[in-house]
Amino acid sequence: MNLTVNGVEHELESHALRPLLHVLREELGITSPKAGCQQGGCGTCTVLVDGEPRRSCLLPLAAVDGAAITTVEGLGTPEQLGPVQAAFHDKYGSQCGFCTPGMLLATHALIERSPKAGRDEIEEALAGHVCRCTGYVKILEAVEAAVGSAS
């Protein structure tokens, strides 16, 4: 099976039902998607599959054969943050950081599909993402800032 992750192609021999999350973390060493609840309920394993946010813990490898995957590593670098990352940094949208990868990717996908998203759309886009620090006020401010700078 073939997978393009952050622009790099990989050929994999893994079991077809192995979750994408485990393939990314354990076989490819890409550790930004976190293994949180591992049943689809927390959002921190979220990655982009052909640009759409998906739960990597729920996706068997067979479902993403030939797909392009984007993780936080593909959004920017520590020296040059992507615009969504920069907004989260500026607005203190991250505390312990465990939920941040999913929040960043869900926000990135939201802006791609709806560059002028309002508050309701933002809340719907992030509804499946839990922040265990309960830092939602700052997270929503960061997302609104990211939407504002994009539009």
């Binding site: 077809a16 039902l17 979750p19 485990h22 591992q38 689809g40 813990c57 729920l58 996706l59 479902a63």
Partner: peptide, 21 residues
């Protein structure tokens, strides 16, 4: 979609002989 079945397969709560994707 795997949203119910995949966690059960990964955790070993479900262990069929074969799976149809």
């Amino acid at each position: 979609g795997g949203t119910i079945v995949l966690p059960d397969l990964v955790a070993g709560r479900l262990r069929p002989k074969s799976a149809l994707f």
